[in-house]
Design a protein around this nucleic acid. Sequence first.
DNA 1: CTGAAAGCGCTAACAC
DNA 2: GTGTTAGCGCTTTCAG
Lengths: 358, 358
Amino acid sequence: MSSSLSRVTIKQVASEAGVSTQTVSRVINGRPDVAPETRERVQDVIQRMRYQPSALARSLIQQRSYTLGVVTAGLKHTGPSRALNGIAETAEQAGYALLLKELPRFDTEDVLPIFNALVSRHVDGVIWAVPEVGENRRPFGSLPVQLDVPMVFITMEAREGLASVSIDNYEGGQLATRHLIEQGYRHIGHITGPLDWWEARQRMAAWRDTLKAHGLVAADHHWAEGDWSSASGARAAEQLFARYPEMDAVFVANDQMALSVLGASCQRGPRVPEELGVVGFDDIAESAFFSPPLTTIQQDQYNLARITVQEITRLIESQRHGVEGFRLKSIVLSPRLVMRESSRGPEDHKKGGAPASG
Amino acid sequence: MSSSLSRVTIKQVASEAGVSTQTVSRVINGRPDVAPETRERVQDVIQRMRYQPSALARSLIQQRSYTLGVVTAGLKHTGPSRALNGIAETAEQAGYALLLKELPRFDTEDVLPIFNALVSRHVDGVIWAVPEVGENRRPFGSLPVQLDVPMVFITMEAREGLASVSIDNYEGGQLATRHLIEQGYRHIGHITGPLDWWEARQRMAAWRDTLKAHGLVAADHHWAEGDWSSASGARAAEQLFARYPEMDAVFVANDQMALSVLGASCQRGPRVPEELGVVGFDDIAESAFFSPPLTTIQQDQYNLARITVQEITRLIESQRHGVEGFRLKSIVLSPRLVMRESSRGPEDHKKGGAPASG
DNA sequence: CTGAAAGCGCTAACAC
DNA sequence: GTGTTAGCGCTTTCAG
């Protein structure tokens, strides 16, 4: 193992090729003002010595790193990892490298160290891909984080002065609830996500509002709180069955929790969808293969990621060009309903309609 | 918005505090040789100006970035995202930032650009967290990638001269197959992963060998190939039911595919586990809530990530201290069986045993 | 205890 | 076309 700990520098290349470092710099940057034969000679040396320019040195002098900071939390969860997936692919295409930081908990409020770690590495922009939980957006209100690095948030309530890209969870909740109503269900319960999550609260509010708008009841014993896990879904379902016996459908705030509701139906409990309509949220890969296949609300995390990267690059360019008046937009994307077997209710049977396949 | 595009430099702090940059440097690095009152004055200025040292400049001069390059592929899949999750957490604790690159495809062989992007940013080490698929390890054999950056691979066949940390997929396949045999099943089929994946081949080889070692048959029409997706699992299951009617159990190479085998049983098809024993692989979060709950092989991706980071830091230190003789180890971890309902076979009933819960 | 000088690897701005 | 000078923000070395 040849431990050539030191990297090949532009200086070495220059002296080997018998030119100045300037000329080498011109060659590696594809500048036109180099004599063809000089260029060729330099390129030969570069190849031979396996010279690789230092992005670090470049970043330092150009005040630009072509690196984006990405902050996530709970990467093992579906949402965050799908979002990161999209960000990684899109950023790559846009010519950016990614500096990744993971928060220890979703509701971490002590974000300054994280932020500084990114800023000290001269990231050109930051994507804050942590869902809004508890008070974890507070640090961005005014005080602590104040550095002038372009920043875009994913998944949060729109706020003046902060750029964000979110999926409309309220609309998703409406879609789900309205769909169950249209399918002929009349006693619709709800299993929520953890209510310190903004997304969970949005979905729940939509459930409540939609029922009321249709003259149906959304009482306090018609919902139960889960924590996104299948286990919590099973517990919540049991609670609901006990306190809301008339329940003939349930809107579950994510697919993993919905799975346990279906699971119950397969062996014991009410049959889905005849006795119990079920709609989930997320459209995870497995949902189409649950028994019965799960109707759910699809979030296009990939598109969300794409738009986020687009926004951050836009902000970066604006800042570079000294544009002062750019607006910090809050972009909101619409989810869509994917109908499968689990919500094929009385109304649908009457009409003899067949479910669409996702 | 105050567009202070330029960052606060050590020079500015120095002049503001009326000392040399040297002294400021000593303060921020916690060196002892600074007069208490000087230190305090400097620290005040640092706070007031919100000075943040540039990690970039430091990396340049110290020839060390405290940054690890991580290469992944298919982040939307369970395995890769769980591994990344573990790497992120462990690296953070070890004081490293992460530079993330995602390959466009699992079997990408053109890895030099990726590698160079990392090296040019002076990463101290690289974790290659891409599963071994097709010939995607070829570039590391000898030629293209030759730079002296410590590197650890995840999930691959042990190779001389490369450091790796893997889970023993062959052992996992043995555990699964042997378990089904012990449960009294005698006609055990197999749904494989895509066979250009090393892991899939390992699991399959173990299935075949274990059956033979027990005097059972592993014929060519006793297995079918999937692509890890639930949809492919459903297709493979149908094929197997058709060509291997006596089949009374099946070892499925991952949980997502196993899900569709269970799904079939819930509504139509053989009942699990009475008529068909099923064992999966991975132990995804949902498995315990399938109907019936799925027996599966658990890979401790988190531990794997932990050990990987440990190895890479070990290599980095060795290289720094000029240790030449360090061995590049191939570390192999054992998976474990998590028994649930789906494999509670004839033998188990005879003994009246209850399944353990995962 | 503190400061001055040199330089990490590169590029911008100017000479020639 | 090409080289020289300066400097990005910091630390190392060596004076004092």
